[in-house]
């Protein structure tokens, strides 16, 4: 499935909008990570434990969103947005939402590119 955070997908036409799809995850850090991060925080630098936590949260939120999109029979999710909220001390919510759409491959690709009004550079030799 194509997932983008732009409103259009170059090379494709949007046939039908199927509505909003979303996924959210609330995750907490385990104590070991908290202690390790506390120590690392003394001298600064990347807190890898927390970065990993964010990456995992984001991945599972996107997976849940894609599961919804698949259920709707979508070809792509466009205009994807992320948002986070701190619910309590020690936990965070990662929320992702987008619009599920049905697609068709655009047939008049050169015309579309020209329509943007951007001068085309000379071909690379």
């Amino acid at each position: 499935m194509i997932v983008v955070n732009t409103e259009t997908i170059p090379g494709y036409e949007i046939l039908q909008s199927l509505g909003i799809v979303q996924g959210n995850v609330v995750r907490a850090k385990h104590m070991g990570r908290d202690i390790a991060a506390g120590l690392k925080n003394l001298v600064g630098g990347e807190l890898r434990g927390y970065t990993e936590l964010l990456t995992e949260s984001r991945r599972s939120a996107i997976e849940r969103m894609l599961a919804q999109a698949t259920e709707l029979g979508a070809d792509a999710v466009i205009n994807v947005r992320f948002s986070t909220s701190a619910i309590t001390q020690g936990a965070a919510e990662l929320y992702v939402y987008g619009t599920a759409v049905k697609l068709r491959e655009a047939r008049n690709e050169p015309a579309l590119a020209a329509a943007t009004g951007v001068p085309q550079p000379p071909p690379l030799s």
């Binding site: 194509i2 997932v3 983008v4 955070n5 732009t6 409103e7 259009t8 997908i9 170059p10 090379g11 494709y12 991060a37 690392k40 925080n41 003394l42 001298v43 600064g44 630098g45 990347e46 807190l47 890898r48 927390y50 970065t51 936590l53 964010l54 990456t55 984001r58 996107i62 994807v80 992320f82 690709e109 590119a113 943007t116 951007v118 085309q120």
Partner: peptide, 29 residues
């Protein structure tokens, strides 16, 4: 900006890329 101005068809369709980082602010700062 929200659209790609001069897209060309490539090997793959456009793709969402994401990244995240958590940096500590050291004790001195």
């Amino acid at each position: 900006i929200r659209v790609m101005l001069d897209p060309v068809p490539g090997d793959h369709p456009p793709m969402l890329v994401t990244s995240e980082v958590c940096l500590g602010i050291d004790h001195f700062r």
